[in-house]
Nucleic acid binder design. Structure first.
Lengths: 163, 163
DNA sequence: GGACTTCATGAGAATCATTATCAATAAGCC
DNA sequence: GGCTTATTGATAATGATTCTCATGAAGTCC
């Protein structure tokens, strides 16, 4: 399969631990535990590579394919948010906010803040109707420079979404 | 250099043929001509690969690196819009609408409609201020199924952004 | 507790989009 | 026409992600 989602801001609405997919109860493994624990401890988005590196350093040997697989599953069940970084990587973060929301991401330190969405859904639905489109969804991300980074004058992270 | 932009909805505002970068007037070559012509004839987004394939079939031999380079330049000068497809490809389309706008893209046939943005900029600026962020930009794409595809019941394009 | 079934994992290779390198070529200018 | 220099093309390289398949562990039944 392929990760066909551009973003999950739209989809977090369906995060629902009682969903049928979740009912398939994945086996509880040390590796999955390690990944979820790490995600739970992170305030900002991490790429699969970063997660893998961290777990390696911690001694929790988890292979890269496993990291990808687990993240994909978590994303499918709405347990993590995913965003595309500027350099074609996918970054993940445990979903803290239920319901429809978006992310305000610092271009330098990758810190992410979840923010409730405005009435974009209504607007999107209206636009779609006007053009004869159905089944609309949307992807919305906000990028900026957080207060800390502004004060520090830190250089932009090479891995981060630019501009 | 790297293509660090996640999307250019934000950036099309700065499309400005008189900008200093543009003043460096790129040389007019057969290859660039072919690429621009093709883009001008397309109503929807095309990936670099698709453009390359088409030009090959037409007999206008343009190498893939050249396609990428040209598209990047066009994107930098705001002459084309770029969006990320679901499967990690970047798709380009000639920018028809000047000023700030977004895209409503059909998941099945990739047809794209440019739509003027709502007051997201104001909202984004407000949210950013609330969280101490500066220099905000945003990425917003709308996805749906166009009227034609709905009627036709066409299967989803394997290359298109899903959901 | 032990055997069994089945899913998750890991190692490695493969894929695929994109970018870098560098010599050859063509555009623009005199 | 000759010169300078940006552009191109062939090729290799890069890097994220996915696939394959044998191995091992989790959950279940007895």
């Amino acid at each position: 399969m392929t990760s066909t989602d551009t973003m999950t801001s739209t989809d977090t609405t369906e995060s629902d631990l009682t969903s049928p997919e979740r009912a398939a109860s994945p086996r509880w493994t040390r590796q999955r535990q390690a990944i979820e624990d790490y995600l739970a401890s992170c305030a900002d988005f991490r790429t699969a590579q970063q997660i893998h590196d961290h777990l390696q350093q911690e001694g929790a040997g988890v292979s890269l394919p496993t990291v990808y697989r687990t993240l994909q599953q978590l994303a499918e069940t709405g347990q993590v948010d995913q965003v595309r970084t500027g350099d074609a990587q996918t970054a993940y973060r445990r979903c803290l906010m239920t319901g429809h929301h978006h992310h305000l991401i610092c271009r330098r330190c990758q810190t992410a803040v979840e923010v409730p969405g405005p009435d974009i859904q209504d607007w999107a639905a209206q636009v779609a109707r006007d053009h004869g489109f159905s089944a609309v969804g949307h992807d919305l991300e906000l990028y900026g420079v957080c207060a800390d980074c502004s004060a520090r004058g830190a250089p932009e992270s090479p891995a981060g979404p630019a501009r």
